[in-house]
Design a protein around this nucleic acid. Structure first.
Lengths: 198, 198, 198, 198
DNA sequence: GATGAATGAGGTTTCATTCAT
DNA sequence: GATGAATGAAACCTCATTCAT
């Protein structure tokens, strides 16, 4: 999952995974203000160890977000090889939302650099492919682009998150509504052109 | 717009508005971690002045969020008196999104108490009325509730906010898509029951 | 009670007394860190009014302490005119402790200037007279001075205050013990000469 | 003297002692309102270092007070093993007052929790033992309890502290007076029963 | 590579005091 | 004379980050 470069000693690699997992949980629980101290505690390592793996908090966040992007890209690519374009797109959105849960990928956006942007672009490409195929099959409207779908990934989770005491699966309801909105039947023309991708 | 109780001296009232405006801008720019110092600077007053108007940061946030709720409630009530149920609902969502812009009402939710919760509940009632009328008129699906619409208010802005360099009006595109998803034509059954309101 | 100088309008005089009373209660309850705001609240006036009566917190404290000194001086002088030297000294210490209760005159000491020092010196003189008379009558040891007695005034209340959950009259116990220590019978010579008074 | 648990690295232990010493001096000089910043300065460390040793100002105070209690308990226990009951009690009070100097153990009392209370209770037990032995030997009155002596510990220092410009050893004078008050000879009955210990 | 300790920068909040009404 | 509002200084505390072991 770490993808590139250096070998990393066995225990170090394990600590890295422990930290990523702990950080993800802590961010999910406390939001972006979760402290490095709490993350280190949860992972069972010392605070300084966090910095021997990630040069800064930003870099740790980038690793998490980048990981999500990479995972989703893999999912999208796998689904691209399946037969049913509608099922593929639908399942992608479901898997994505399910994986993200309370976590908002919006955390970081483009305010960082290189690596995450690259991974995000790869996901964008893969999602666009899924979208193009669905559009070609008449599953979704002609005026919906891959970028639209990309931006919509987090929406269902976010919407459900606005409810003070939501059922954990409430997001599925809004995903279905949005998906219906993407369908060709009964579609009205859109007031704003599709966004370009930088 | 501040609605309640005491008269407030002229200059104090002015400072209060300056502060609310500055806080809103600062929160929009830096998120919920915007510092009181920066807010005070932007409003051109001393840090301590902020606390003479709002006893704590939480209370300042509550004032902003509560203000939004109150404004939206007023809008919803006004539109309830207009003739066209579809136009009313549509315009409500538009005005709401436009007013909120980059700001996420999710900020505070129910983790606080009394006043904001009350104002939110009033908005919920007003939105439900708008929704009921639209449903009765066949404008939206039979299985969509006022709570659904309430939760969807912020979605378009949030979705557009996921784009790194979005056009300021991009949210209108996603609002149209979601609204289409709420329409009766081509609606598929929803996987999750509508959420109750606490 | 305000003793000297200017006439003071009727309502202003009333506010001054209200403030002194409120301050005394608040200091008794919260210690020297009681805030001007709380004192003003308790007196039912605005914070700024406090400063129109007392130029600073120090001055307010000085007024209270000075008031206690003046009261005690009056008491001592009155008792000096009574017949029984032992009863006089004993009652003085009792009245003093009772009036002070949880309040520590030590609050301020000599770190301030003029007026309070003057009042304290007057009290010192009166207490010395009471003490001299008691010593002459053989009620207390030959080696006990007025300054000794002056310093001992607050001791009983302070000692009882060291108990976490003391009976409100516990100080009487320690006053009796100390008074016994001052008596001629069974007195041992003291390791330290009596302190001079500045 | 720190007694408990973890090993602590060499330099950290040194800093902890520096901090405790600096805090004690600063509290003695400025009272309980001494600032953490000043304490840190005096110890030659950064402000944040104080908090890495003591989680809060309260905890720092607790460490100091607890330390005094522990020290005094050790002293009392040692003296309990000596031959002369009078000398033992007398020396205990002397050592206690000397160690405390201008410092008032009253600072914190029972308004905190667990550890300090426990240490205070241990001291109370030890003092009671010393007292019982002295009473049994006829050195002090029959109606004086260990709790009385416990409460009297700080009195001499406090009394001397009421003098604006006292000789540093003035407290010895008042300790002698109080000790005389505790003696059987010439004792009058006490107006208030001995306090119980919570 | 991992850690305990130290730290500088900054956050929210309190408070005595001043000023304009 | 009284007040509501404004303020500067300072307090306690947190946290990402660096350093020596």
């Amino acid at each position: 999952m770490t993808s590139s470069a250096r070998p990393l000693r066995a225990d170090a690699a394990r600590n890295r995974e422990l930290l990523l997992a702990a950080a993800e949980e802590e961010f999910a629980a406390r939001g972006i203000d979760a402290s490095i101290a709490d993350i280190a505690d949860r992972a069972g390592v010392a605070k300084a160890t966090v910095f021997s793996h990630f040069a800064s908090k930003e870099e740790l966040i980038a690793a998490i977000v980048g990981g999500h992007f990479a995972t989703l890209t893999a999912v999208a690519r796998r689904l691209l090889a399946t037969a049913d374009p509608e099922a593929a797109l639908s399942e992608f959105l479901t898997v994505a939302a399910d994986g993200i849960k309370q976590q908002d990928l919006t955390f970081l956006r483009a305010d960082d650099d290189s690596r995450v942007t690259e991974l995000r672009n790869e996901l964008h490409v893969a999602v666009s492919a899924l979208t193009d195929r669905a559009r070609a099959a008449g599953v979704i409207r002609a005026d919906i682009t891959g970028t639209d779908v990309f931006l919509l990934i987090c929406a269902p989770v976010h919407i459900a998150g606005c409810h003070p005491t939501a059922h954990p699966d409430l997001w599925r309801r809004y995903q279905a509504i949005i998906f219906d909105g993407l369908r060709p039947s009964g579609a009205n023309s859109l007031p704003q052109p599709p966004p370009s991708w930088p």
